[in-house]
Design a protein around this nucleic acid. Structure first.
Lengths: 204, 204
DNA sequence: AAAAAATTCCCCCTTTTGGTGGAAATATAT
DNA sequence: ATATATTTCCACCAAAAGGGGGAATTTTTT
């Protein structure tokens, strides 16, 4: 019997998965939590085979939660669950130790398939998740540095180079350099396109 | 017995709602569809009391589907179901004849409450939906005109005023006027902030 | 310790954006 | 038919962004 814990803050989705797992032979949903804190507490006394983990949680980031869980209990397999189809997120989640990624538009059987696959030590991606991963490989985005991200956020907030320079205690020319670097990195023509891309790719 | 039909393309959410309704006295889920076309076909031979309708459907827009359903069968109550918390969408959905709006982060009982409420001819909003509506009333966004939206999209694509002018066959000064009008409308300082706001508010 | 990357700053110059304040011609709604 | 809103355009001017290129100083990685 495969023991499963679930972290999912959407009651409707929770019920759906519960219903699917209840019908399934050999899989037992041993508990459900609405946030990461509760899960971490429960893990102290009980380690399941698999954790189904929503990455959009009220109290903490799924990426962070996954990393913590794997650091404390490396044997536990994490299957990420998300409406988020950003390829970047999927990749980061896998880097943080997740064994599978199932989008919420997945078919019923993909949930149980994912669980059965990851306990065997393999990785699993739902159909739609792998679609996005493939797209990501072709059009992978160059990473932003810490400073660039800071500048980018301030640009998105509507600050001008002089204003950003003041806030970051650097020269205007520095801010301008970062801005131009980012334009070049992403191959966009101006700030408008940069902001759009950044938001669509979940960078800000 | 309240007869319910459901249109929902996410199997996980579908299962969740099915499970909730199955446990409920006096409510019968008489059918489920993965798209709007199938629902419309079914409605020819059977009209339920309530339709639970996801507004993000694969084949058509929920707003449009709701309008069509209400035009054909005014007696049927529509409860919109969405992960989308944009206040503008909620409002538009209600204008199109929906009787209720339940966000997918709603608690279980909110689904059944919604169904029982709308059949009595009242409106129902899930807790989180009404939160967003309240926010919308205080910080409501000025509407964009058709032309402004066109210009906005081209700005977001990284086009400059001269390029947009060429594409729309108008003078650069016209495009500039639209751009400046939008900045003023939304009370933002520059294009970067405009694009961010537009994307966050689902205008583009 | 050496190599690579990130952060910082500089130059010059052109284009674009944004602020102010108009005004006329079409559409759209009442 | 008459308001109202939209779309179109104008001028002037200051500020900001963007393109090209270079370079020194930290940090981080190997």
């Amino acid at each position: 019997m495969i023991q499963v814990l679930m972290v999912e803050d959407h009651p409707l989705v929770k019920e759906g998965i519960m219903a699917i797992l209840a019908d399934e032979e050999g899989i037992n949903c041993a508990g459900h939590f609405y946030n990461g804190t509760d899960l971490l507490y429960r893990l102290k006394s009980f380690q399941p085979d698999v954790i189904l983990m929503d990455i959009d949680l009220p109290d903490m980031n799924g990426l962070e939660l996954c990393k913590q869980v794997k650091a404390l209990y490396p044997a536990v397999c994490v299957v990420a669950l998300s409406i988020n189809n950003q390829a970047g997120i999927i990749k980061k989640m896998m880097e943080n130790g997740a064994s599978g990624y199932v989008l919420k538009d997945a078919a019923q059987h993909e949930i149980t398939e994912a669980i059965r696959t990851v306990v065997k030590g393999k990785q699993y991606f739902s159909r739609s998740a792998s679609l996005y991963l493939r797209k990501a490989d072709t059009g992978k985005l160059p990473p932003l540095t810490r400073r660039e991200k800071q500048v980018l956020e301030k640009i998105a907030d509507g600050l001008t180079n002089p204003q950003i320079a003041e806030q970051l205690f650097v020269d205007v020319s520095t801010v301008n350099s970062h801005r131009k670097n980012m334009l070049a990195k992403f191959g966009v023509q101006n700030t408008a396109a940069l902001i759009k891309l950044a938001i669509k790719e979940n960078l800000i």
